[in-house]
Design a protein around this nucleic acid. Structure first.
Lengths: 200, 200
DNA sequence: CCGATAGTGAACGGTGCGTTCACTACATGC
DNA sequence: GCATGTAGTGAACGCACCGTTCACTATCGG
């Protein structure tokens, strides 16, 4: 029968199951109330298997977040509609924050104390794909003359994600569509848009 | 003698002592490792006195942060030097984040789950005085013609604090002077500055 | 098919939580 | 200045979860 041998998992297989369990628990109870025992039970794994891999809750959650973060972002091709493209990406990021992944990030932030290689790694693994996409959009806009070349400055490229992340971290939920539009129309677009070419 | 009667404190007196102890502990061990017993011991108070006032660690820290936040910010008068004024205020905020207060904020963020009246209150009690100061600076700049009137938009007024807070939350430490200058020169000033009055 | 490797599940001591209780210091009204 | 109520102390307690250990078992590779 199907019950007799429950098919014991190992290695990456098991690891993925643990990540899934951790993220599911995060969604249900939040980082602060995450119990290692609950994660283990949910993953149908022994606690020892968790502690064999990660020294504590913080590292487990960080690893789970990194796991999710590295799942390939769909490659994005600018459509030429600058505002529309930015809006789509920003909504995508906000939607991601509404996910267990967002809860993992919140927990990670709460636990941060000193700059560690691991936490730097998590941060860049989240930022890098976002930077790539925004840079692509801005490059496209620059080529079309709608965006100022200065928009490619790293801090500027990171601005939109920064606004979304800050909003998410300091409230209970991600920015909704209206807030995203405000970010766009009041901050991002005014900053990056090329002047209306008066003498061209 | 001085030792015989240790002068038992009550009410606000005791409460302040507890806040001080909590903030000192936060500075030493961080939010994640904050122990109620340690706070009580440091404040030379009974645990019961803590739990009489706040239901748990999260509420205590939130209250301590609010307590610090409402300590009056020195009233700031714009000097006319837009960049210099902004730089001074931003450095002030960054310095505040390097303080136990910053650690309290980090803990509060990590614990946030749903929008509660208390957490909204903490957020606005931090934002409001900052908004007042930045608005004052921008108004002054508008009067002098160096700042665009659109700078008074709430999201724009909040931009500089947002950048600082996001930086602080996602790293182990607050923005240093160089980062602040980059925020100013690459984001804030380009966004708020009035165009160089070509036809005036 | 056998040895090595990796996972399971239960048990354990330790620690901090949040509560309770008998006791004590201070504050107030008389 | 004495009696009474109020607020704080400090120790103790049960509990939940932590992180570890161990005897056992399933799976993998040769």
């Amino acid at each position: 029968m199907s019950e007799s041998t429950p098919a014991r998992r190992r290695g990456d297989d098991l690891e993925r199951a643990i990540f899934d369990a951790a993220l599911a628990e995060l969604a249900e109870v939040g980082y602060a109330n995450l119990r290692m025992e609950a994660v283990a039970a949910r993953a149908k794994a022994g606690k020892a298997s968790l502690y064999k891999r990660w020294p504590d809750r913080a590292h487990l959650v960080q690893a789970a977040a990194r796991h999710k973060a590295t799942e390939v972002e769909p490659d994005f091709e600018p459509s030429g509609d600058l505002r529309g493209d930015l809006r789509a990406i920003m909504r995508h990021i906000a939607a991601q924050q509404a996910t267990p992944f967002g809860e993992a990030i919140r927990g990670w932030v709460g636990e941060l104390r000193s700059t560690s290689a691991e936490s730097e790694e998590l941060r860049t693994s989240i930022e890098t794909p976002r930077i790539r996409i925004f840079a692509k959009i801005y490059e496209d806009g620059i080529a079309r003359g709608t965006v100022r070349p200065e928009a490619l400055n790293p801090r500027v490229v990171n601005l939109a994600p920064t606004l979304l992340t800050h909003y998410f971290l300091t409230r209970a939920e991600p920015a909704n569509d209206e807030v995203i539009d405000e970010f766009l129309d009041q901050i991002v677009l005014p900053l990056i848009s090329a002047p209306p070419t008066p003498a061209d």
